[in-house]
Design a protein around this nucleic acid. Sequence first.
DNA 1: GGCCGGCTTCATGCAATCTTCACCCCAGCC
DNA 2: GGCTGGGGTGAAGATTGCATGAAGCCGGCC
Lengths: 226, 226
Amino acid sequence: MRLLVVEDDPSVAQFLKKGLQEERYTVDLAGDGDVGFRLASHGSYDAIILDVMLPKMDGFTLCRTLRANALQTPVLLLTVKDSTEDAVLGLDSGADDYLTKPFAFAELLARVRALLRRGTAQPAACLTVADLYLDLIAHRVWRGEQEIFLTLKEYAILEYLLRNHDRVLTRTAIIEHVWNYQYDSMTNIVDVHIRALRAKIDRPGAASLIHTVRGIGYVIQTPRNR
Amino acid sequence: MRLLVVEDDPSVAQFLKKGLQEERYTVDLAGDGDVGFRLASHGSYDAIILDVMLPKMDGFTLCRTLRANALQTPVLLLTVKDSTEDAVLGLDSGADDYLTKPFAFAELLARVRALLRRGTAQPAACLTVADLYLDLIAHRVWRGEQEIFLTLKEYAILEYLLRNHDRVLTRTAIIEHVWNYQYDSMTNIVDVHIRALRAKIDRPGAASLIHTVRGIGYVIQTPRNR
DNA sequence: GGCCGGCTTCATGCAATCTTCACCCCAGCC
DNA sequence: GGCTGGGGTGAAGATTGCATGAAGCCGGCC
């Protein structure tokens, strides 16, 4: 899940980024409204967390501008004062929810989860293909009865592949989802991680769960009966 | 105390969540019966508040299914009509109490408190994993026959980890729960206390009860086979 | 005041993990 | 069958994150 945090105070921004990353979100930061708009309008975020007080363009305006550009991404506004005025202004500008500073980080998380839930019908608690089982809450993975221990990147890639099973994912798509920002196109880092993943989840001798689609990318297919 | 609210109407759900949070409960929401079941079956809630009218799986069925899966968590049903029929159906399906809409929030609170009392009254007020035993009332900890003396912070962290066993807790979550910090992402205070805890509760040579999840946080795991 | 226990910060070293790179292998094309 | 380019492979190097020991800080107590 990709989030954009638009926040000018570097220490708050870092705090949010770190905390969200610990929850396995992919987080981009923008320090002012202009940058925020540029990043947000690319439209590849699952939710946007927006400070109201911002240089260049305040949060309300930014939010309104995004909506004017037909951007649907859920927006969570961070307001400073607990005034109904701000809240009304916020929701009027097209935000989906708001939170007044200071807030408990756990509450931010809950609201972000709520926003993401709203966007995508329902959050599955586990993903599974064949006898591979991925527990999204405990962040643990099994193949049959055997637990498999994955690194952060391996887990992220596997989750992405499973969420999009039967759909070929290009290296670029994988990089954009699992890493921040774009990488140079001449890296085989995805290949290397896929190899590590295969080594861990596949059974010796059997065909790999992860199929290579030559010239395109990778895919995990669910068994089909035709 | 963790509560699960299964309710499809977003405004009612938010109302319940907010109100319960103000009473210092930790609240998760589920929007339909399926999601509710998945979350509930993880078993980490102290009580479940269940609307009868739900998409996917109605409250009675959900409740019965949970009980069929040997889940003991107390359940409070929210029924719409004040018919004895519904009440009987509810209690038959394994619910512990019911409440007819509309209701006063204070009454909901009272019933939730009653359920929690009932829940914690019968089983001993202790948390335990392997041969580690934590007495919540006496505030004392044993490893096997050996009593272990913990400082305040150590005890708080251990209790938090035990209450959320099998769930990876991020440093941010731990800090927020045990301290009242915010915006301090550059401290390793959790690490240091975890180290002290391990030194006290672990046996020399044996693997630690507290597992490190690299890049995320810490977790205490109960033996489990998926 | 001085000592003590507990809490917090800091600096360091080690190990897991990530990334890059060079080379190998094989499918697809001629 | 040979060529080509994309993908697989193994290992080296860079980076990051965690564990650790020590030191500083603070409040309570003698």
